[in-house]
Design a protein around this nucleic acid. Sequence first.
DNA 1: AATGCGATCAACCGCACATCT
DNA 2: CAGATGTGCGGTTGATCGCAT
Length: 256
Amino acid sequence: MGRPPCCAKEGVKKGPWTPEEDLVLVSFVQENGPGNWRAVPAKTGLMRCSKSCRLRWTNYLRPGIRRGGFSEQEDRLIVHLQALLGNRWAAIASYLPDRTDNDVKNYWNTHLKKKLLLLEHNQTPSPSQSSTKGKWELRLQTDIDLARRALREALSVDRPCPSPATTTTMITSTAMTSSYVLSAKNVSMMLDQWAPPSGSSSSELLTDFASHASAHKNKDEAPLSAIESWLLCDDGAGAGEQHHQLLDAALHSFAF
DNA sequence: AATGCGATCAACCGCACATCT
DNA sequence: CAGATGTGCGGTTGATCGCAT
């Protein structure tokens, strides 16, 4: 049995919202708060699907939303985060205050993707660039070192918490609980003790760190935190994903 | 002035997961 | 515990607009 539709299809209005409809929705939210979207059409008489109401509120009517006019800095951040996280627009938007995932997604699809393609096209690889695998690896290693530092700082129990948004994102994205904080010190120690093998590729570095983390698991230490499961995650994504997650943490910690 | 075409973006759709009953 | 319902998310669509011909 498939999942039933969120609302009856008959008599449901589609397409652009009118100012009158917006007013009705805003009034409802002011009185009842956001949530219980299924009740909105019934209580307000709006001929809109509950899902449509939620979307309209979260993407356009919610207070404090900035729309359009992306700055150069935001452009760079989106490009960087997209390379890092892929098309996880909600996660990307969480780094951009007052931006919605839909807005970021649209902006990426209409502006940034093209901009990047153009840049790529204009950048004809020079002989030195084409043979710079070593440099690239070196840069990845630098990134990992940066991530290690960031993680150590971010996980330090003495360190004040990062911004609320950062904490929320980290916690939700890794399904962490309070045990995360409790074991943070151990993870921090683990990172301290880890000496990356020289001359290794990024994936080898990550594998090494994963086994380092794994070795700690069997010792008489507090349970390893979510960070370990990041590094040991067996989701088929491989080291690339792990690397992304490390860099993600670094970005959070350094506020980019 | 009429038409075609590409760019933009608001909104919809379907899926996955969380929460409720 | 299972099914129903709510919510979040990413991909896609389609209406609209501006510009070129």
